[in-house]
Amino acid sequence: MTSVRPKLKPDVPKAITAWHTASGEVVWMTPKGDWTSNPDALGVFTGEVAEARLADARAAEGEVTDPYFMEVSETGEIRGRETLRETIRAQGPTTHPEFAKGEAL
């Protein structure tokens, strides 16, 4: 039971996020198509390129698990309906500021 993920229109800028299978760490696809645990280094994709990249990610499913689109701005800031969830995913639980990866919420 995973939460329902909003469907994003083709022209909406998006990032691709998943979990590293062996460690469980949250990862994002970089502009080059590999994976990073630094949310500041994520790639922004739209349209058919985005679909193709997600398909690649799904094909590489052994390395990462359950890749999906998340909404971001053109410059890569988390946006949209799932902003709170994706911000917590990127920065760690708000209850444990010491685990934060990026800036505090």
Binding site: W19, S23, G24, E25, V26, T65, D66, R85, I88, R89, G92, P93
Partner: peptide, 10 residues
Amino acid sequence: NGVYLQLHAY
């Protein structure tokens, strides 16, 4: 076996 994939990790 009690292993979930949660928001941040297993």
